[in-house]
Amino acid sequence: MATQANVARQVRGGRYEPLPARSRKSLLRRIGDNRTLLLMCLPAIVFFLVFSYAPMPGVWIAFTNFNYRDGIFGSPFVGLRNFEFLIQSGQLWLLTKNTILYNVAFIVLGNILQIALAIMLNEIRSKYFKKISQAAMFLPYFISVVLVGVIAFNLLNYDTGVVNALIEQSGGDPLKIYSMAGLWPIIIILFWLWQSTGYGSIVYFAAIMGIDNSLFEAAAIDGASAWQRIRYIILPSLKPTFIILLLFSLGGIMSGNFGLFWNLVGNNAALFQTTDIIETSVYRMIISQNNFTSSTAVGLYQSLFGFALVMTCNYVVRKINEDYALF
């Protein structure tokens, strides 16, 4: 933005000034020039300073035998000892695998469904039906995950759950769903899709709305079918949106949807093998084991891995098409 402002000034000044112009102006001058913009950014800047940058030195805990009295920097240094057990026990690998696989499933299935939904909404002609179905699909997004957890328990529990009641009524044997680790990836993904698809489809729907109408008119004159319109106009137009969203989600591939996982699974160790992701594991380590060191170690690993991933993705995208890169 600063560059744009400078460029505008140069044009108005009517004289050519070769880039880099930024280095020639003093920092103070540039701050002065952009004071209003900077002021508007201030809340965001303060937010990130306080909540993201200020706590960063705390990662030092990962390399210490932390105790509260000596504090973060006074506790004895133990090098990589906190990482040893995490690697040796295979826990770090399990968490990485689960976290990434869940996110891949969320990204792939999520985007496909969202695009499909957006296109279907676009094809609906009845205005009221369109609004109502949109609202109905949007609604689950606003239901707290705590409630989702309660709903899930009441659907799935063995003794009084709805699912098992139906199975029993139709003569089958009830399922011990809360002990069946293999089933939970499906359950979690279904709940996630139910919650997020309607919301996610809005972005794609908006992108469809933004497509130049003359393209559709031309297609209509050429006698394109609805299917051809989707295939040759809508889908290609959604590509930039898709790529931007994909990049954003790749950046978060090492973080999980903590609230959903925690409320669905909680402390049920029988399901950890297939449901434990980095964030639930870190939470449990701190909350029920007061294990500040290992949880910081896992958190640091998550951040570094995620950082590397974002940089790599961005680099690759920049190579392919610079316009699509985030930075």
């Binding site: 000892r81 380590m285 084991q289 007061n290 290992s294």
Partner: peptide
């Protein structure tokens, strides 16, 4: 002092 990380790791295993 020296066994705290060990106890934490054991706590993790036991809680499972």
């Amino acid at each position: 002092d020296l066994i705290d990380p060990t106890l934490a790791a054991m706590g993790g295993v036991l809680s499972e």
